[in-house]
Design a protein around this nucleic acid. Structure first.
Lengths: 121, 121
DNA sequence: TCAAGTATGCACCTTTTGGTAAGTACCTAT
DNA sequence: ATAGGTACTTACCAAAAGGTGCATACTTGA
């Protein structure tokens, strides 16, 4: 046990790396909403319909630790916190646009394919 | 039970849809290698280091059912099959390029962030 | 005949991820 | 005093994803 440090955990291609950052059931949605501007926790929760507190916080924490989002605590009397994209996060969202476009353009084919899946996924 | 069919399983944004297609531990890698041209099963397995037969087949099946890859069985005497991207798959890979670029450009930050993660992921 | 290679299939089990529901601490309005 | 809102935290569970390893059917080479 002397050189097990960073045993080239590098990724095969950039996509591989990127997916580590945006994987998570609610992350794309969170990014989608944050892209519209800083959002308070409760507001975000109401936007991302169906997410639980546990999940929202967890995904936000990961995105924060990855440097994608920034948590701002205004230290005000009636608790007030909001989340926003960092410049790094914005560059990610920007790079995601073509993929959003592709997904949007083929939404129906994708939905149909999903339905074909045995477990429906 | 009259209208439970396709209860608007639509996606919030295109990215959301796309991620359903490329999610899977080995899919980005598979796509990466198939992008270089049609590849035989065994060849692919040797390229995607660390993948088991079960996983490779499973992910290929999903990609196939999603219309991203095409399986070609040459029906030859010594079993011979290969996998390639469909035009649809190529368009996906093409849309993924910016994200690949982003990931490649920030590989180190991402790797560092991963290391920071409590569970290391 | 035995080993090895090709492309899978299948059963079983562990890990990871996500969900439910409850609690906390502090504030405001009634 | 009680209810409701803010932003979380925690424990416990279920489901999904992934991994291990053996089995198959057919082939060629030694």
């Amino acid at each position: 046990m002397a050189k097990e440090k960073s045993e080239t955990p590098r990724f095969i291609c950039g996509l591989h790396a990127t997916l580590h950052v945006i994987n998570g059931k609610w992350k794309p949605l969170i990014l989608f909403f944050l892209n519209k501007g800083p959002t308070r926790y409760g507001e975000l929760k109401r936007s991302v319909r169906g997410v639980s507190d546990k999940m929202l916080i967890q995904q936000l924490k990961e995105l924060e630790s990855d440097g994608i989002v920034r948590r701002t605590d205004y230290g005000e009397i009636p608790l007030r916190v909001d989340y926003s994209l960092t410049p790094f996060g914005m560059s990610l969202v920007h790079a995601m646009e073509p993929l959003c476009g592709w997904g949007a353009a083929h939404e129906e084919d994708i939905a149909a394919a999903m339905d074909r899946r045995p477990t429906s996924r």
